[in-house]
Simulated scan of single mutants.
Amino acid sequence: MLTMDDIVRDGHPALRKVAEEVSMPPSQEDKAILQSLMEYVINSQNPEIVQKYGLRPGIGLAAPQINVSKRMIAVHLTDEKDNLISYALFNPKIISHSVERSYLTAGEGCLSVDETIPGYVPRYARVTVRGIDLEGQEVKLRLKGLPAIVFQHEIDHLNGIMFYDHINKQDPFADLPNAVPVEK
């Protein structure tokens, strides 16, 4: 089981590397890594397990965050209609996105970043993501709101990009024209 000790922190070189594609079909090792990412995210949302193992709650995790430079992410959250969005994907890609932007009103956080970094993180309001699940099936997801933001955050990790790279350095809370605010 992954713990907070397995998660690399800001400044670690793995977080700035472009991760490699996972060759298909995935090896047992790659499947086990992806499964462990999903287990961490699910466990980190269970108050008893959080307490017992000192986990920090998260809704997404990417392989580079555990020092594995491969294109794998796990996301587990509910959308604004309380639908469960729970996916562990190999080689996720944003294949289309809206012109319209959105941002989390509370800003974003990251399991690899210990401090709070204030500011709006502009994201696409809607994205379509394609990837391969643990069963080897191609998955195509149309996402908006918080799920769209989380997938963009995790896919950024695969490209060596941190959420705070998107924040306006001069004015972190500058108005984002035509952007839809999203409450967490």
Rank of each mutant, 00 (worst) to 15 (best):
M1V: 00
L2C: 09
D5V: 13
D6W: 00
I7S: 12
I7A: 11
R9D: 02
R9Y: 02
D10N: 10
H12T: 08
H12K: 07
H12R: 09
R16T: 00
R16W: 03
A19G: 05
A19C: 06
A19W: 01
A19D: 01
E20C: 03
E21M: 11
S23K: 14
S23F: 06
S23L: 11
P25T: 10
P26I: 02
A32H: 03
A32F: 01
L34A: 13
L34R: 06
S36I: 00
L37T: 10
M38L: 15
E39G: 05
Y40T: 10
Y40H: 09
I42C: 11
N43H: 13
N43V: 02
N46M: 08
N46C: 09
I49E: 04
K52Q: 15
K52D: 08
K52C: 00
Y53P: 01
G58P: 02
G58K: 06
A63C: 08
P64I: 07
Q65N: 09
V68K: 15
V68H: 07
S69M: 09
K70S: 10
M72R: 03
V75L: 10
L77H: 01
E80H: 07
K81G: 04
N83F: 11
L84Y: 07
L84K: 13
L84T: 14
L89K: 06
N91Y: 03
N91I: 02
P92T: 03
I94L: 15
S96H: 11
S96R: 15
S98I: 05
S98W: 05
V99Y: 13
E100P: 00
E100W: 00
E100V: 04
R101Q: 15
L104K: 01
T105R: 14
A106W: 03
A106K: 12
G107P: 13
G109R: 02
S112P: 07
S112D: 05
D114H: 09
E115M: 02
G119T: 12
G119S: 09
Y124G: 00
A125N: 15
R126K: 15
R126I: 07
V127M: 07
D133M: 08
E135M: 07
Q137C: 05
V139A: 05
V139Y: 04
V139K: 14
K140F: 01
K140Q: 15
R142V: 11
R142F: 09
L143D: 10
P147E: 10
P147G: 14
I149N: 04
V150Y: 08
F151M: 12
F151W: 07
Q152N: 03
H153E: 09
E154H: 04
I155A: 14
D156L: 04
L158W: 03
L158I: 05
L158K: 04
N159T: 03
I161Y: 03
I161G: 00
M162V: 12
F163R: 00
Y164L: 00
D165L: 01
D165R: 01
K169Q: 14
K169W: 01
K169T: 08
D171M: 05
P172Y: 13
F173S: 01
D175P: 01
D175K: 06
D175C: 00
L176F: 02
N178I: 04
N178V: 04
N178W: 05
N178M: 11
A179P: 09
V182A: 04
